[in-house]
């Protein structure tokens, strides 16, 4: 009897590409991450047929969770149709048999880069965020061993130094993406490069958020209904981008996160960043039967629950008063 006869017959790839051992490890890490909200769990990041830095972290988490009954949506900077998003979506569906969608309401797993959907995610949905740099302390403590000690001690005073510098130089918080947040009053977390606009979405959210960095081999989680507050000074409140003057060129929508499209004459037009949401609005305007979910920000720019965004509301209300 030779070794070749003893070996498993060649079956191509295992289900969802990753071997069973890798998936089991990832699921255990994910459970640990959920048990300790905001804590960066190290994991063995596997080789995938895409390059590190192109969403391998998010892809591994998605592949370890996906089943044939799932519906997957992949977002890249808000868009469903970018090359990266299309590639990932095709790969996931080919390897798992899961359905794909561009509708945030129908998806069970949403893998995203740099955005959270405009529509409110509900219980049972999982948001997987691709993370390039999971360590929020890197800007103040380049030594990762020391940064881990700072995390263990919950010694985050230096994080405010970054914000202090921004206020000194520019008079406001200028960090546009990956704004540092405090999760469950314990760990400071880099929420992946989502814009400030999306940061409040994580606070007391109904859905599960998993964040995974493939190159840095770290994953962490925000379980449903967890407190996620941005770091701020007591006298200088956190604010989201003010885009209330901007209207989408396709749908006329306001008070959603917009892409700015520069024109030849130097002016700019604006378009909804969330293409799945825009597609639904367009179909609705055509008279098709689509269900548009409630959004995190209403048409007046008010957030859907009383989070920490109250100061911004009062500022917006003050001109009328």
């Amino acid at each position: 009897m030779s070794l070749i006869e003893l070996a498993q017959p060649n079956q191509g790839y295992s289900y969802a590409f990753l071997d069973a051992f890798a998936k089991r490890e990832l699921r255990r890490r994910i459970l640990k991450g959920i048990a300790i909200p905001g804590y960066q769990v190290p994991y063995a990041s596997r080789e995938l047929p895409i390059a590190r830095g192109w969403g391998t972290g998010g892809l591994q988490v998605t592949l370890s969770l996906v089943g044939p009954d799932d519906t997957v949506k992949v977002i890249d900077q808000g868009a469903d149709d970018s090359v990266n998003a299309a590639n990932l979506r095709r790969f996931i569906t080919r390897m798992s048999g899961a359905e794909t969608t561009t509708d945030a309401n129908q998806a069970t797993i949403i893998q995203s880069r740099h955005r959270i959907t405009e529509e409110i995610l509900r219980e049972g949905q999982t948001l997987v965020l691709q993370v390039p740099n999971p360590e929020p302390l890197r800007r103040v403590e380049p030594d990762m061993a020391k940064a881990r000690i700072l995390h263990a001690d919950a010694d985050y005073g230096q994080m405010w130094l970054v914000l202090y510098e921004q206020l000194v130089r520019f008079g406001r918080y200028i960090q546009g993406a990956s704004y540092p947040v405090m999760v469950h009053e314990r760990f400071v977390m880099a929420p992946s490069p989502i814009p400030r606009w999306d940061t409040p979405d994580l606070h007391q959210s109904a859905h599960l958020t998993l964040l995974s960095a493939g190159r840095e081999k770290r994953l962490y989680a925000v379980p449903p209904y967890t407190n996620v507050y941005p770091l701020e000074f007591t006298d200088v409140p956190f604010e989201v981008e003010d885009q209330s003057e901007w209207a989408c060129r396709t749908t006329g929508e306001r008070n959603k996160f917009m892409n700015e499209l520069p024109q030849d004459d130097g002016s700019s037009v604006f378009e909804l960043s969330d293409t799945g949401y825009m597609e639904k609005l367009v179909n609705h305007q055509r008279g098709e039967d689509v269900t548009i979910g409630t959004t995190y920000y209403d048409s007046e720019g008010q957030f859907y629950h009383d989070g920490y965004l109250k100061p911004r509301r009062s500022r917006q209300e003050s001109p009328d008063a």
Partner: peptide, 26 residues
């Protein structure tokens, strides 16, 4: 910290004691 402002360097000392009001720090 050579790349942070002089006042930021001094403020860091106050930040690690838990001061979180920008005006006071300044």
């Amino acid at each position: 910290r050579m790349r942070y402002s002089a006042s930021g360097n001094v403020a860091e000392r106050l930040l690690i004691t838990g001061e979180r009001t920008f005006g006071t720090l300044r």
